[in-house]
């Protein structure tokens, strides 16, 4: 446990270890990968089992599946426009993967794979590659006009173009840092206050009474983390949509 040795060990929860016994060890299958599989399996189950009934009046699973679908469909059409519908599967998969990663990570003993910047940067890099691909496919060489706004004086080009390129390349980084930092900060706070509970609990007679304080903070934090889990998935998806909008309409 974290309280052993009287030190708050808030970061060991992010350490990777292999799972599934010798098979997992042989191929470096970590608990992070396992939770990605969980998230993907849950998303697939939600969509197949949930929509299996196809009832006019949806049951619980079906209404969850439908509201997830409509939420992202609304976001894509609002942000990108009608032609954005063809990118719906991409945005939906991203949103579900991030949301489920954040949400599953809040369960006890679970691992939050979105708390690793490699994972979030991988997702964000994929977003930027897809967006750039879309822009290149739709506009060809005109895409590079994106880096030099019309009407700017030509002699400023040597400054504007590198700045715009750096700004464009900073998108995946800011996208990934935002998600990663939010998840890490939340889980560190949860762990710190949980450690306080254990430390205070072992403090003689008054300890267990005092430990109610950090415990209640943790209850509130848990609710807050649920909000953050949803909000960050939402931000990730909507920024993807905004970038797709820029790619489709080239601005």
């Amino acid at each position: 446990m974290a309280a052993e040795g009287k030190a708050i060990d808030a970061l060991s929860q992010f350490e990777l270890s292999t799972t599934l016994g010798p098979i997992g060890a042989a191929v470096n299958f970590t608990q992070s990968n396992l939770h990605m599989v969980y998230a993907a399996a849950f998303a697939i189950l939600l969509m197949t089992v949930g929509m299996g009934a196809r009832a006019l009046v949806p049951g619980r699973m079906q209404s969850l599946a439908e509201s997830a679908y409509e939420f992202i469909m609304g976001m894509v059409t609002e942000q990108v426009g009608e032609e954005g519908k063809r990118y719906f599967p991409f945005v939906f998969a991203l949103f579900m993967f991030v949301l489920l990663g954040n949400a599953i990570g809040l369960l006890p003993y679970a691992f939050t794979y979105t708390s690793h910047i490699v994972v979030t940067f991988g997702l964000a890099a994929m977003v930027i590659v897809v967006v750039t691909g879309v822009a290149l496919a739709r506009h060809g060489w005109h895409f590079f006009g994106y880096f030099f706004p019309e009407g700017a004086p030509l002699w400023l080009a040597p400054i504007i173009i590198p700045v715009e390129i750096v700004s464009y390349l900073s998108r995946p980084l800011s996208l990934s840092i935002r998600l990663f930092a939010n998840m890490v900060a939340g889980h560190v706070m949860l762990k710190v206050f949980a450690t306080f509970v254990v430390m205070l609990g072992g403090l003689g007679v008054v300890g267990p009474v005092l430990s109610i304080l950090p415990l209640s903070i943790n209850v509130a934090l848990m609710g807050f983390e649920l909000l953050v889990a949803f909000l960050q998935a939402y931000v990730f998806a909507i920024l993807t949509c905004i970038y797709l909008h820029d790619a489709v309409h080239l601005h």
Partner: peptide, 11 residues
């Protein structure tokens, strides 16, 4: 903050 830091890191 994230926007500034990420642009700086990329640059």
């Amino acid at each position: 903050g994230v926007e500034v830091v990420s642009a700086l890191v990329v640059g």
